[in-house]
């Protein structure tokens, strides 16, 4: 198997494991990144698809739900990253072909 394919599979495995990070943060009662959680004022400029990697309406349904939406968000994010990066590099290197 090509290395890039192996790395791709590894990234998908990582995506499925992301809820572990969420669970351990909850277990150790650790909040968001330093300085990121305190301010709530200020205008909302943009409505994210799934704020904080959580499906809308699943915010208070418990860890299992947030874990599931976290992992699905990871997979969706990976798909967007691959598509955006491939599209961008294709546009940039178009003349070479």
């Amino acid at each position: 198997m090509k290395t890039t394919a192996k790395l791709g599979i590894a990234i998908l495995v990582l995506a499925i494991l992301t809820p572990l990070a969420l669970f351990s943060s909850a277990y150790f009662k650790a909040g968001p990144g330093w300085g990121e959680g305190e301010l709530t004022k200020g205008p909302k400029l943009w409505k994210a698809l799934f704020p904080n990697y959580t499906f809308r309406g699943w915010e208070n349904k418990g860890l299992l739900y947030s874990g599931l939406s976290y992992a699905v968000s990871a997979v969706i994010g990976i798909a967007f990253c691959l598509a955006a990066a491939l599209l961008l590099t294709r546009l940039l290197t178009r003349k070479k072909r």
Binding site: T4, L7, G8, I11, L14, A15, T18, L20, A21, L22, S24, S25, Y27, F28, K29, A30, G33, Y53, Y70, S73, A74, G77, I78, C81, L82, A84, A85, L86, T89
Partner: peptide, 17 residues
């Protein structure tokens, strides 16, 4: 490059408490 973007995306989701 695309895999690098995806890797960076997913590794940043591993918040360490």
């Amino acid at each position: 490059l695309a895999i690098g973007a995806a890797f960076s995306f997913v590794i940043m989701m591993f918040n360490i408490p």
